[in-house]
Amino acid sequence: MSSNSSSGAGSSFGTGLPPAVDLRAKSRPGERVIRIVLVASALISVAITFGIILALIEPVIAFFREVPFGDFFAFEGDFAVLPLVTATLMVTVIALLVAVPLGLGAALYLSEYASRRSRKILKPTVELLAGVPSVVYGFFALTFVTPTLLQDILNVGVGFTNALAAGLVLGVMIIPTIASLAEDAFSAVPHALRQGSFAMGANRMQTSVRVVLPAALSGVAAAVVLGMSRAVGETMIVALAAGALKNFSLDPREGMQTMTGFMAQTAGGESPVGSLDYNNLFAVGMLLFLITLVLNMVSISFVRRFRQVY
């Protein structure tokens, strides 16, 4: 083998190409099939997104033919959407207040403090939380958080359904999303940066907060926004625990219906196809879609802007 290759590589260089080498183009049909399959799978998700938008548009147009914009973007009235929007924001903010500190704390612990062994056990456990069905969280909020935790233990005067319990439990639900993605972002920070920081005489907390966190900022922001999108779009918890009454209020102790809660209720009710209530559902759905779309766009631009090339 050695004599063969050395004569091929060594001596043939000066004398010209040996005749046995075939460099003609070959057809590779397998490669084309793979390519088509991959393009198709990429296109299908795009097509589905556009399909959803198209399906939304027709009832939305029908809705706004009968109901003026002013009646839709109003705080009061049968078709007012703003109480639903404020309720959604309220619940989401409460959820983020719970999930961002706990999620980032868990992520920093897992990536910067935990030994390899405890990380191996803890990370899948945290991710397990993401696998709990949201209806279970909803009943947890309704039957434990509101009556036992809030009313009995903490003595907060909350109603049977309230935004506080829904937000708290929603926050717990999105902890794994934030923790897991943020942990990935922290782990992707090169070890050399941590070493540089330790070599300057920094301790672990300073290294984590002043070097690792800023270096992973874009990934952390993406994690938070994804958690937020999940909170905005989550239905079951808020339908059960936040209430089924449109209520424009800034008091989280009151029950209030969110956009998703309204949609679940209307879709489950007896609104005939093509009726005004039915079309209202799509108008709210469209608005929700636009809100999450904007959130995702903000997150993408944020990720691009702060992405570090190490």
């Binding site: 090169p190 050399a192 940066l193 070493q195 540089g196 920081s197 070599a199 070097v211 800023p214 270096a215 570090q308 190490y310």
Partner: peptide, 9 residues
């Protein structure tokens, strides 16, 4: 260190 490792600052 071997490879320059400035902080992302």
């Amino acid at each position: 260190f071997q490879k320059p490792n400035p902080f992302p600052k």
